[in-house]
Design a protein around this nucleic acid. Structure first.
Length: 417
RNA sequence: CGGGGCGUAGUAUACCGGUAGUACGCUUGGUUUGGGACCAAGUAGACCGAGUUCGAUUCUCGGCGCCCCGACCA
């Protein structure tokens, strides 16, 4: 993509109403725009990042047998009444709306009810399970206080997967498989070394759940990490009984602030019983399915990456989530030959299927480099009078800023490795 | 929801009970051209409502919006 086609612009100053690093950098670089408190629009660059994150998640969910679908955001109150979750006391973050005929609808804060109802139509035998379905769908949560930029918002897309199993053992098997898939996702997203599977409370559904917590000072949670074992405990269940159960001792734990980037938890038969999702076992007996729920918020993950992987100049995207693989920057000084050469390189990269943002603006080097650092694409290619005289292209890694030279005959090979 | 703070050009800010200033941006012209250039001329602003006052962007009240701390977070 040519920069001159991009409608967004970078800014030197962060808006004064944003304090969080993720929002400041993402707004300055033109990835997102704030519409309201806790409501952000994703601009072309931001949407590319979000899509890349979703691609990683999708690949890993498909790899463990997940099937993607898309439910609705408008919710039928009747289903939520059956599980006793329609009242504002049960779920205090509801956004509700009224129909013209006077009826009421909900804007989905989560999707246990509709997915259970949906699957009830397709699961009737033990032979129909296990099944794993997921979606990327907008959730609305009427947070009393939105905060931390794109990490705690009132409207956000969430990947939510639901598992349907015959019994506890079958459920457990998938639960562990999913935990492994989550670890792969966070590793690919560039935050694997700072993300820990964390024992946490199960909320209103069950005794426990597992969170995936990424160590970061901008986080809202406090966790206790056992680095040797590679696991952690959320402060909310930091009690002797739990520590004993997990086989960890207080003296070896390290306290840290962390961001909850994922959460998996058992639902048991809480929803299947309430909504009649039962199946017949081998003996013809009617049994409720055992369910599990598995969530990741791609936007929160995006925000976490920015919080962790950025420096004074801007963002430093990991390869798999970067909006483009390379940032081609021309320093032309008004010289048409350099423009032609940069155009040629751009075409060559594009023909080889390399995703490239081409800064073809008629701007000075300083501004282009500053913007390039801010936007944070992993590899920068510079074409200038200097590089042309040396018969090559300058390659700069955003992460460390060290320039190397490559002849254009070796460029494609270098980038494809 | 409790507490605190803030609303001034597109952005960041200043001053003031008496015609709102600066920087960046943007427009035009010129000089520049490897780390956010320079000169010149332009462009553009007081969240909404009520009150006090001769006069309110400024003071008071209300509303709306935004931020922070806490609480909450299926």
């Amino acid at each position: 993509m040519r920069h001159t086609q991009l409608f967004t612009k970078t800014r030197k100053d962060a808006p004064k109403d944003e304090v969080s690093k993720n929002a400041q950098l993402l707004i300055r670089a033109g990835y997102v725009r704030k519409e309201l408190a806790g409501v952000y629009a994703y601009l072309p660059l931001g949407l590319r990042v979000l899509s890349n994150i979703q691609k990683i998640i999708r690949e890993e969910m498909n790899a463990i047998g997940g099937q993607e679908l898309s439910m609705t955001t408008l919710q039928n109150p009747a289903l939520w009444q059956k599980t006793d979750r329609w009242s504002d006391e049960a779920i205090d973050v509801w956004f509700k709306t009224t129909l013209k005929d006077g009826g009421e609808l909900g804007l989905a804060p989560t999707h246990e009810e509709p997915i259970t109802s949906l699957m009830q139509e397709y699961i009737s035998s033990y032979k129909d399970m296990p099944k794993y379905v997921y979606q990327f769908q907008t959730k609305f949560r009427n947070e009393l206080r939105a905060k931390s930029g794109i990490m705690r918002t009132r409207e956000f897309i969430m990947k939510d997967l639901y598992s349907f199993s015959r019994d506890e053992a079958q459920f457990r098997e998938f639960y562990e498989k999913c935990a492994e898939a989550y670890a792969r996702i966070f590793k690919r997203a560039g935050i694997g070394d700072k993300t820990f599977r964390t024992f946490a409370s199960g909320g209103s559904f069950s005794k426990f759940s597992d969170e995936f917590q990424t160590i970061c000072d901008a986080g809202e949670d406090t966790i206790y990490i056992d680095r040797k074992k590679g696991i952690a405990v959320n402060k909310e269940v930091y009690i002797d009984e739990v520590l004993a159960e997990l086989g960890i001792v207080k003296s070896e734990l390290e306290e840290a602030k962390a961001i909850e980037v994922g959460n998996i938890f058992p639902l048991g038969t809480r929803f299947s019983e309430a909504l009649g999702l039962t199946y017949k076992d081998e003996s013809g007996k009617e049994i409720p399915a055992v369910m599990g729920s598995y969530g990741i918020g791609p936007a929160r993950l995006m925000g976490t990456i920015v919080e962790l992987l950025s420096d004074a100049k801007g963002i430093v995207w990991p390869k798999e989530v970067a909006p483009f693989a390379v940032h081609l920057v021309s320093i032309t000084g008004g010289n048409d030959e350099i423009v032609a050469e940069a155009d040629r390189i751009y075409d060559m990269l594009t023909e080889h299927g390399i995703e490239v943002l081409y800064d073809d603006r008629d701007a000075r080097a300083g501004e282009k480099f500053a913007d390039s650092d801010l936007i944070g694409i992993p590899t920068r290619l510079v074409i200038s009078e200097k590089t042309m005289a040396q018969g090559g292209i300058e390659v700069v890694a955003r992460a460390n800023g060290t320039p190397t030279f490559v002849a254009d005959s070796g460029l494609i090979e270098l980038l494809q490795n």
